[in-house]
Design a protein around this nucleic acid. Structure first.
Length: 536
RNA sequence: GCGGGUGUAGCUUAGUGGUAAAGCAAUGGCCUUCCAAGCCAUCGAUGAGGGUUCGAUUCCCUUCACCCGCUCCA
């Protein structure tokens, strides 16, 4: 399937538009049109119902160790700036970078190190790649090469001082970049802030800077104590949230896949540390099955466990649910959802201060004065088991899904072209979206076969009745075949048609989008039949 | 962020330094008794800004957006 065809259909039929298109568009932002908003809402509603409101806390689901509770939450997009310092996003998403005009490479400003050296009457600052292991040997090699000296003449190099970070220099005109062979190729350090910055308060100054959340998860951790105190939840339990998040992507690309404003569907599942591995596996498999059940059944969907070297030090497991989007090279997959075992990193960071993710067991991250790098809330976020009186900090399993990526994957998977007969029985190409009925924007279209003999009146009556429970659509224009095709293209799974027989026996035909099969259903049973086929 | 390519109607495309063309779609009508039929009519475009020119959609510059490759990526 070519991506351009899907993008074109999305625009033509009102699934997705480029944001601010009348002003030329805005990179990384996308709007959902009248059909797209229904699709996305159906996805979010399915998630919310399947994970939160529809969860049966009285029985033990297949694959789970015991029964558990699920509750929801809806937190603000802007939170106390300290949240992002303790979560690690502030440090991780906030860097000064320098670019090399010659090698086209980009480096963290504070990670580039080098030494001043003088030879042949010229003094330069030689830098090395931050990944270099033997810094001394490398800096010497590069200096010799720059001055066109043989290693036996290394005495001609006059070193001035020890290694320095690039942050100690103001002027880069005499700097040899890590991958450059001439001087002054590095740009001045530029701030890369992957978090959107804003100002709180109408007279806000720089001191009032706040951030739009780069993920919804932190709102859950910040409210962990509130939820425990207000709801009688007992570990194990999960808190779910759906909402917008914002990241200043460096390279937004691939339609809506990497957007700067996007919507997440996240669960933080809190459990006893000794049971966390079991729960991790449970959520990993359950979340994978959710996509399968909603129609991502092809080989384009995969569950991939991270290798050990991909894991954070404190995490004992992370898996990605990935989809082979058509815009990716063959064999490559894009992430739909990550299921991460986060241990107690988040709750403890919000208690004690930001922990160092490179430690295991986790330790508080300190600054150069041996003080906490980012102070925590100081609040006790541990959990007390009411029966055993045991107090502990729960471990967390985090299934974090992208709603927009899910919508895109469902669209990609649903798009297909087949052949259907025209009125002469000749096969014609047909474009259709084979969306699962649960997520299809319109559940059924109601047609009078022709616009006379009282058929429109009967069809409109059915339309009004079904409208009470379903998003249905009425159409009486043109030939019925054309109306079927229009619905096929937007993924409407069923069409109900009033014909002359309806006027005699009060039945209509129900047509299936994928098989083109038609059968007759009494008007009085249409709603029940639709419900059966949608939930089916 | 770098390099290359592309921007013409809702979609797919044509074309030109001098009135911008077509198919599909859409809308209204006629006709239509189950899978994009036909006929009539209607609506509708040169991404944005600037320059050269008597005149620019066409040439030049800038910018924005999209695509491809590289880079980066929670």
């Amino acid at each position: 399937m070519e991506m351009e065809k899907l993008v074109s259909l999305c625009k033509r039929r009102g699934f997705l538009f480029q944001s601010s298109e009348i002003y030329g568009g805005f990179n990384g932002f996308w709007d959902y049109g009248p059909l797209g908003v229904e699709l996305k809402r159906n996805i979010k509603d399915a998630w919310w119902r399947d994970m939160i409101t529809g969860h049966d806390e009285l029985s033990t689901p297949a694959g789970a160790a015991e029964s558990f509770q699920m509750v929801g939450l809806d937190c603000t997009i802007i939170m106390h700036p300290q949240v992002w310092k303790c979560s690690g996003h502030y440090d991780l998403f906030h860097d000064f970078m320098v670019d090399c005009r010659q090698s086209k490479k980009r480096y963290r400003h504070d990670q580039v190190r080098g030494r001043w050296v003088e030879a042949k009457g010229k003094k330069i600052f030689v830098t090395i790649d931050p990944a270099t292991e033997d810094e001394s040997a490398e800096v010497e090699r590069r200096a010799l090469k720059f001055f066109k000296l043989r290693s036996k003449n290394k005495d001609e190099l006059a070193w001035d001082g020890d290694f320095l970070s690039l942050t100690k220099l103001d002027d880069f005109s005499e700097v040899l970049g890590p991958d450059a062979n001439e001087l002054g190729t590095l740009t001045e350090p530029r701030e890369f802030n992957l978090m959107f910055k804003t100002v709180v308060g109408a007279l806000g100054s720089a001191d009032d800077a706040a951030f739009l959340r780069p993920e919804t998860a932190q709102g859950i951790f910040a409210n962990f104590k509130n939820v425990c105190d207000s709801t009688r939840v007992k570990v194990p339990f999960g808190i779910g949230q759906i909402g917008k998040s914002f990241r200043n992507e460096i390279t937004p690309r691939n339609f809506t896949f990497r957007s700067r404003e996007f919507e997440q569907m996240e669960i933080e599942f809190f459990c006893r540390p000794d049971q966390s591995q079991e729960w991790y596996k449970y959520w990993r498999d359950r979340r994978f099955q959710w996509y399968l059940d909603l129609g991502l059944a092809s080989e384009r969907l995969q569950l991939r466990d991270h290798d050990a070297d991909e894991l954070s030090h404190y995490s004992t497991g992370t898996a990605d649910i990935e989809y082979a989007f058509p815009f990716l090279p063959p064999g490559e997959f894009g992430e739909l959802e990550g299921i991460a075992h986060r241990g107690d990193f988040d709750l403890r960071s919000h208690m004690e201060g930001k922990l160092d993710p490179n430690t295991n067991p986790l330790e508080l991250e300190k600054d150069e004065h041996d003080q906490p790098r980012h102070r925590g809330s100081g609040k006790d976020l541990s959990y007390r088991d009411k029966e055993t009186n045991e107090r502990f900090i729960p471990h967390v399993i985090e299934p974090s899904a992208g709603a927009d990526r899910a919508a895109l994957a469902f669209l990609c998977e649903a798009y297909c072209e087949d052949e259907a007969p025209d009125e002469n029985g000749k096969m014609q190409q047909r474009t259709l979206l084979k969306l699962h009925p649960r997520i299809a924007p319109i559940k059924a279209a109601i047609f009078p076969l022709v616009k006379k003999d009282g058929m429109p009146e009967v069809a409109q009556e059915i339309y009004r009745e079904l409208k009470r429970d379903f998003n249905v659509f009425y159409d009486e224009t043109g030939a019925v075949g054309r109306r079927y095709r229009r619905q096929d293209e937007i993924g409407t799974p069923f069409c109900l048609t009033v014909d002359s027989q309806t006027l005699e026996d009060q039945t209509v035909t129900i047509r299936d989008r994928d098989t083109l099969d038609q059968s007759r259903v009494p008007i009085a049973e249409c709603a029940a039949e639709l419900r059966r086929r949608i939930e089916g």
